[in-house]
Design a protein around this nucleic acid. Sequence first.
DNA 1: TATTGTTATACTCTATAACTATA
DNA 2: TATAGTTATAGAGTATAACAATA
Lengths: 163, 163
Amino acid sequence: MTVPSVPDLPEIDDDVAAASVDLDHLPSLIGYTLRRAQLAVFHDFNRSFAEVDIRPAQYGVLVLIERNPGLKQSALGAALGIKRSNLVVLIDGLEQRGLARRTTAAGDRRSHALYLTDAGAALVRKLRVINAAHEQRLVELIGADRRERLIEMLHALASLGRR
Amino acid sequence: MTVPSVPDLPEIDDDVAAASVDLDHLPSLIGYTLRRAQLAVFHDFNRSFAEVDIRPAQYGVLVLIERNPGLKQSALGAALGIKRSNLVVLIDGLEQRGLARRTTAAGDRRSHALYLTDAGAALVRKLRVINAAHEQRLVELIGADRRERLIEMLHALASLGRR
DNA sequence: TATTGTTATACTCTATAACTATA
DNA sequence: TATAGTTATAGAGTATAACAATA
């Protein structure tokens, strides 16, 4: 057990006003609960990564560049579902912070091959540690044994977007 | 079986570029898969509701006003996690479309009690039908017997936001 | 003083169209 | 012609601060 039994924190005042509202079927809808859960999880992510000033999309990009050195922007964007126009700005930021760099790809001078700088690689190691703690918090909420089934169902739902 | 065995549709070209990318641990992260699933589900929602020009937040607001006639804006916002300043614009839109109306609440003249118009009530009946079809599509993706466990886990994750 | 609704504003994320340089 | 990256821009969704009316 990692969760302390009963924190007697003050109630959040919004809950008082919301308490009397009948939510109808919303709490049993997949989309509604998915959205509420995603917002809460991203909030926890952002709190966890505030000290290193990294957002969820930046985390994904840095990890994928580390794992696939020389990755091209188009492939990266396709893998993460980020439009290439938006990826430009994101990578501009990482480059300006000295975390990643673009080099002209050998063979196709339209493409940019992406690499981490040493500072970027060092940061990614730190990010993985922060992320492990964040993820651990989430797993404890649902129960470690249920994690795999959750992921499975989420992938099934996400497949709706790939057709 | 509702899913046809093999649609020989053309592959989405992004998949080709993404195929060679190693996604590292991302596909096993709760936050990452949650986000991808939520985007796909909202896309399906928006496609389903495009003909009636209703967004997810509007759906929630209309359903809750129907279920809780005379609901105050503050309570509505608290129930749905919408800031009161943003709720103003949302309800302005519904009011201008003749779907909802604000009346000064008896007892507290600061508050506005919310009601559906007849047109609003008629629309909500239609929305519930559209939503049932949308939800059915999602349930089939995960398997009807797993739905309850998914909702349970999502609520557990969402509880992270309420502290 | 505190709360409800409002206005104004800003920031993030996502989406589209048009341009360039290469292929 | 088509593709990779870029630029500019626009639209959601979300966030905060300040104000008027009311409690």
